[in-house]
Each structure stands twice: as structure tokens, then as C-alpha cells.
Amino acid sequence: MAVVITQIFNGISLGSILLLIALGLAITFGLMNVINMAHGEFIMAGAYTTYVVQQAFSQYVPESFFNYYYVAAIPLSFLIGALLGFVLEKTLIRFLYHRPLDSLLATWGVSLILQQVARSIFGAPNVAVTSPAWLDGGIAIAGAVLPYKRLFIIALVTICMISLYLYLDKTAAGRKMRAVTMNRSMASSLGVSTKKVDAAAFAIGSGLAGVAGCALTVLGPIGSTIGTYYIVDAFMIVILGGIGSLIGTVFGALSVGMLGTIAEFWTGASMAKVIVFVAIIAFLQYKPAGLFSARTRSLE
């Protein structure tokens, strides 16, 4: 019983981290059709932001407050990720809309530059972030221990998802974003500034990657290549979920997380990756549009 609970929990936990990374991609890749290879480096930027905030807290803030560095690091990671995304969109991506291969190559270049910048600033070896004391320990359920760290990440992802949903569904800016996604030329014919919407969407997607990076710091050491480890999985999830569908991304991330964990339990880490990729490819043969594809009565 304990093993089953642990595995299910691990699956959800891995799925939730993948979801946070994939949500950002679902916006930039799924909704805007930009293949941004530098998305992984926005994760790295968020992780290093957390590291810097921790260093700053340990030096300049009274020790009793140290444990709250993480509370400051989450919004800062979002802002740094969003700022990087905004700058990348304004200086590079906006010239490459409708040129997928060019944008893939150019953003890959940016990704290498950002990795080298990180190595130059923080050094080549990985750095460790001491997670706050209130995240140590866990809850024991039926013999299995669910660590607070992973529970916290699940809660963080849930909050990010709800915020994103509220932004897209309940605000005027979110409405414009959905309209541009569905029909760019019609939205602009109604007076929507598509350039502003593009920049905002890119910043939000990149900001979410920053938060993902912040979350990853509690699980282990961070380095300049931390993003590349997750980026392929995240692209797979967006495609599996159905391009342009956020709800599909949620199900895609949980499926990949769950399948990956179960496969790893029975086989090994490398074999588990193979099994997940084969399963995704097989599924896409059967349903090329992914889990959720938008269909309506209108002829688009």
C-alpha cells in the first residue's frame, strides 16, 4: 500500500513540475506557434534568481527572517523570467513569427548564450540552494511519507494554474490574448493591438518558466543546464495535450509524470524515458491532434 501511494504521489509530483514548465510553453509554443528553445534557460534564470535571493537574505537580512527568502524568490523568479521573455520577444522573436525553423535556430543560439552567461557569473559547478526549514519533513500516510517540499510544489503549481485561468478567462487582457490566439487578423481588425498582446503572452509564459526554476531549487542543486533536462519533456506534453489547449497540457503533464514514474519504478530511469516517448509517439499516431483539440461548428 505504501509503495502504491508513494508512486502515485511521485507521479503527481513529477507531473506538476512538468506542468509548470509546459504551461509556459503551452502559451509561447501552443498558442503563439513559436518554438522557443531558450524556454529551458528561463527555468535556469528562475533557479539562479532564487539562489541570488537566498545569498542576499543570508548576508543582509536578520537570521530569523532567512526562512522567508523563498516567499520573496517566487515573485522575483517570475519577474526575471518574464523580463527575459519580454526582451527576447521584442528583440528577436517578433521578427521571426511564421518562420518556425529560423526561430528554432535563433532561440537555440540564445539558449547557449544564456547558459554561458550563467557559467560566467555563477561558475561551472552546480550550486546548492538551502531550502527553507519549513519545507523539511513530511506527512505520513499509510506508511508512506509525502515530503512537504513536493506538496509545496503541487500547491504552487495549482496556484499558478488558477491564476493563469483567472487571467485568461476573467480579465480584458486575457480575453484579448485568447482572441489573438484564435484569429489574429480578426482580432486586429477589431482594434486589438496584436504586438502588445504578443509581448504580454511571451512574458507570462516565460515568467511561469521562472517560477518552475524557483520550484526546482528545493529538489536539488542547480546548474546552467538545468532547463535542458526538462525542455524536451515539456514540448512533448504540449503536443500530447493538443496544441493550443491549456486543459490538454494539464492532462498531458499528469499522464507523462505518472507514466514516467511507474515505468521508472519497474525498469530504470533511461528505460522509463524510452517507454514514455514510445507511448507518446504511439498515441499521436492514433490521435494526431492530441488529447484535446478545439472543435466547433464554425468553419475556420
Binding site: 480584458a172 480575453r175 484579448k176 485568447r178 482572441a179 484564435m182 484569429n183 480578426m186 482580432a187 477589431l190 482594434g191 486589438v192 478545439a294 466547433t296 461548428r297 464554425s298 475556420e300
Partner: peptide, 15 residues
Amino acid sequence: FPSLTVEENLLLGLE
């Protein structure tokens, strides 16, 4: 916009 409500479609006209 097919997956926006009628109201949301109309509100976009205000842009």
C-alpha cells in the same frame, strides 16, 4: 471567436 462567449465577442468590439 468560437470558444469565446457571445458577451466576450461583443466586448472585444469595444477595443
